[in-house]
Write a protein that binds this DNA or RNA. Structure first.
Length: 454
RNA sequence: GGCGACGUGGCCGAGUGGUUAGGCAGAGGCCUGCAAAGCCUUGUACAGCGGUUCGAAUCCGCUCGUCGCCUCCA
């Protein structure tokens, strides 16, 4: 039984979908005005793993994740680049999906764009105004949070103290915590007409409309980064509450990506974009990094750690490669009594304890290799097939990248083999050094030799 | 200022009162013509000071330090 930490009440709860086997989850997606940040990567990976695990457990995951394509930042960027805001949004959305592919993230079943839901957003804002929980001000429509019974639950703090803060006060609002549902357009801005005045939706409103529009008024899980917990998610919840929706049963928030102990930000020179990360390293290396830490903990990411993860990944790939022949060999039987998979699942059931799950994988790899070494192929095959399944759940399946070895390298390797056969080891070693200098490695195996990139 | 999280061996990172987490890096060994890969062995860590307990990294208090949210944010 999968248990997850619910950030609404701060307790662990058993996952019991409202309408099994369907599992309805909504994850806050990107605002597309720039390259995806490495933190977005952690977010999508976290929820991708949740989804894969739910599917592994037999649920049909109805996964919706929005694309915010109208927002102050998009407008601002577009203005600076003298581009149309929608053109800018489309460009970065395209990049977003390309990076999701590289990360091996399963596509959400629905990926709604805010601009396709304007009408429904306007309707919802009108309903909120009609019921007196929202009011029209001179620059937009605001939610009156004092009308919402338990406003502040997700913030987990006494909002009367926050209330006293003047930081986000404004003469347009009744109280500082009120938030915009609809923003009236300033001159020459992107705008849609509405009964209260031309303008565009507020960020907190689109997510409520799209999540409930796609998944229904009640759904199973709503997630995002810890920074969304308050105020974004609380504001979504406030609207849903005011509308009488059940909304999300479980709230799931993951921790930040840090570098040198500081939350990643653009001002830091390191991996600021996913693109850069994925260009430099095997995308699975980042996934492994993410999976090695618990999703609620901060995650340290540096170049050194990406390289370290690459080494760890090599060990896993090496294992898959080594076990390939016996996995394909029908004469080697499987041992059904293996307990590795159940330990893996126990770990995952415990609030997605991927660090424990990866520990199990590495231990199984070690046992599998040892079994292979002593000729116990049955055990080795069993572990290998279960490890493969676990890796798939984590989205870490061994890359099917057939490394193309340049002809001249292949030739050198053949020459080396010949030298080796004639026991001219000096020549063989010289050839290996030459191959190594060119960036490749020759390994002798039982079946002969193998060349790979070093 | 309010709220919260955290400080673990060279690095990352688990650990929710009592037996080796795991990975990477390092050391020794086995295997190998030599390597690589693999296997075996090797790390007695838990910010500091008190306290509770037969027993604490794990609970309590204090101190120091780091970080986050409270404003756009994964």
């Amino acid at each position: 039984m999968l248990r997850l930490y619910n950030s609404l009440l701060g307790n662990n709860i058993a996952v019991a979908p409202l309408s099994p086997p369907e599992f309805k989850m909504y994850v806050c997606g990107p605002t597309v005005y720039d390259f995806p940040h490495i933190g977005h990567g952690r977010s999508v990976l976290t929820f991708d793993i949740l989804r894969r695990y739910l599917e592994h457990k037999g649920f049909e995951v109805n996964h919706a994740s929005n694309v915010t394509d109208v927002d102050d930042k998009i407008i601002e960027r577009a203005r600076r680049g003298s581009q149309h805001p929608i053109a800018l949004a489309r460009k970065y959305e395209e990049i977003w999906w390309a990076e999701m592919d590289r990360l091996n993230v399963l596509k959400p079943k629905s990926a709604p764009r805010a601009t396709d839901w304007i009408e429904q957003i306007v309707d919802m804002v009108a309903t909120l105004v009609g019921s007196g929980v929202a009011y029209i001000s001179d620059d937009g429509v605001y939610m009156d949070v004092s009308q919402v019974e338990d406003y502040g639950l997700l913030a987990q703090q006494d909002l009367s103290k926050v209330q006293s803060s003047e930081r986000n006060a404004s003469e347009h609002k009744r109280q500082s915590l009120d938030f915009a549902l609809w923003k009236f357009a300033k001159a020459d801005e992107l705008t849609w007409s509405s009964p209260f005045g031309d303008g565009r939706p507020g960020w907190h409103s689109e997510c409520v409309v799209m999540s409930t529009g796609i998944l229904g008024h009640d759904f199973d899980l709503h997630g995002g980064g810890l920074d969304l917990r308050f105020p974004h998610h609380e504001n979504e919840r406030a609207q849903a509450e005011a509308l009488g929706y059940g909304f999300a049963q479980i709230w799931m928030h993951h921790g930040f990506v840090e570098s040198q102990g500081v939350k990643m930000s653009k001002s830091l020179g390191n991996f600021t974009t996913l693109t850069e990360m994925l260009d430099l390293y095997d995308p699975r290396a980042y996934r492994l990094l993410v999976v090695r830490a618990h999703y609620r903990s901060p995650l340290e990411v540096t170049r050194e750690l990406a390289e370290e993860a690459t080494s760890a990944l090599r060990r896993l790939d090496q294992f898959a490669q080594r076990m390939g022949p016996i996995l394909d060999d029908p004469t080697v039987e499987l041992d059904e009594s293996g307990s590795f998979l159940s330990r893996f699942e126990d770990a995952m059931d415990n609030d997605l304890d991927t660090p424990a799950a990866t520990r199990e994988i590495f231990e199984a790899v070690k046992s599998g290799n040892a079994a292979f070494d002593r000729g116990d192929f049955r055990t080795a095959k069993t572990l290998a097939s279960q490890v493969a399944m676990a890796m798939k759940v984590l989205g870490l399946q061994p890359g099917r990248v057939e490394e193309s070895i340049p002809n001249e390298i292949a030739k050198l390797a053949t020459l080396r083999m010949e030298a080796k056969r004639s026991r001219d080891f000096a020549a063989a070693d010289a050839l290996r050094d030459q191959i190594h200098a060119a960036g490749y490695l020759v390994e002798d195996t039982l079946e002969g030799y193998r060349v790979r990139k070093s």
